[in-house]
Write a protein that binds this DNA or RNA. Structure first.
Lengths: 184, 184
DNA sequence: TTATTTGTTCATTTTTTCTTGAACTCGGGT
DNA sequence: ACCCGAGTTCAAGAAAAAATGAACAAATAA
């Protein structure tokens, strides 16, 4: 049971606001919603997140008010598992947050719509960890350079490459905060 | 200098330089090479490219001189198909280029090592196209907004969301050149 | 406490993406 | 022309990632 019907329902009435909807599971989306989802699904792909995450965020974004777990599951006709994991992940990167709804109703979610925060969360959770991993790796490699290949000429070139790689990482780290600021 | 040895060799001798190697297909990589590959494989993952592309770029990066098709295939023990596609793609984004080798030898490749160009190529080939796609989509959606949901209150919220989305895209486009410059 | 409903976890299935390999094309070389 | 090796293309197989669903946990009501 999802949508509207009556407000006196003895049980968790599906928060409305999201739509005049009462549509069936799939295709129960307005054109606006479908297209917005598509945009975010594309974005998700670019940043390497599963499509379902993009759909969830997109639906929240295209809804005028917070939605609860059941709303999301029903409108996107995703499995409970996907919705659960999706919400968790999106909350982890700060793309979705708990909306403080009046009644002690079911938990409702709303999208973070500040670009700066969205990007910030993504950088923090995805890019930085990667940089950290590589850095550790690089630190370990440094030594092996001396032992490896043939002549000193090659050795020199490789040393230069290695140094450059380390420098890249530093630069990478340096741009991140900058990007955030720029989008502020 | 590539497959040194001698320029009169009747057939494509596997260019060396990359290593004191004469090792067998797999594991025929020095520790330095293996670790460098790993770093680039990780990077490939982040930017959504197949692992094999990361390996190819990584191998080139960890080699003191240009390598040819056969070298790459042998040292990474990848199929011809993967190497072919990998090289094509990496060249397309400007991450790898043809090295102008002396003799009319087999084509040799070398990595682009200017961060600015690497990033630039990636932004141009991957991010911008995405933005373009979304923009087209958004342009189409704009209209549908009027027809969709219920009350005027919601309508207003959604209109705001839509506008913000459009603004995001503009901002996104604006940062790109900026990032490049910063890395210059 | 027991019954119900919401939400989570995780093994399994499904889908998507990557890699392979074989057929094919292109360019000499003879 | 014919042969050979280099490289490309693409259908099919392998691998990886995501979605599902069922068992389970937490919370609430009865």
């Amino acid at each position: 049971m999802r949508s509207a019907a009556n407000a006196t329902a003895p049980h968790p009435r599906p928060s409305v606001l999201g739509g005049a909807a009462h549509r069936a599971p799939r295709a129960g989306l307005t054109t606006f919603e479908r297209e917005t989802l598509a945009v975010f699904v594309g974005l998700a792909r670019v940043v390497g997140l599963p499509k379902s995450y993009g759909e969830i965020y997109g639906l929240l974004y295209a809804s005028a008010g917070p939605l609860n777990f059941g709303d999301i599951q029903a409108r996107l006709s995703l499995s409970k598992g996907s919705v659960s994991q999706g919400i968790r992940a999106l909350r982890a990167v700060g793309a979705v947050r708990l909306a403080d709804i009046a009644g002690g109703d079911r938990k409702h979610f709303e999208p973070e719509t500040e670009l700066r925060k969205l990007v910030g969360g993504f950088l923090r959770e995805s890019i930085r960890p990667h940089l950290d991993g590589s850095d550790r790796r690089l630190a370990a490699v440094g030594g092996h350079l001396g032992a490896s290949p043939a002549g000193p000429a090659e050795r020199k070139v490789l040393q230069a490459r290695f140094d450059k790689l380390v420098r890249w990482h530093k630069q990478g780290r340096a741009v991140l905060p900058w990007i955030e600021k720029f989008l502020g």
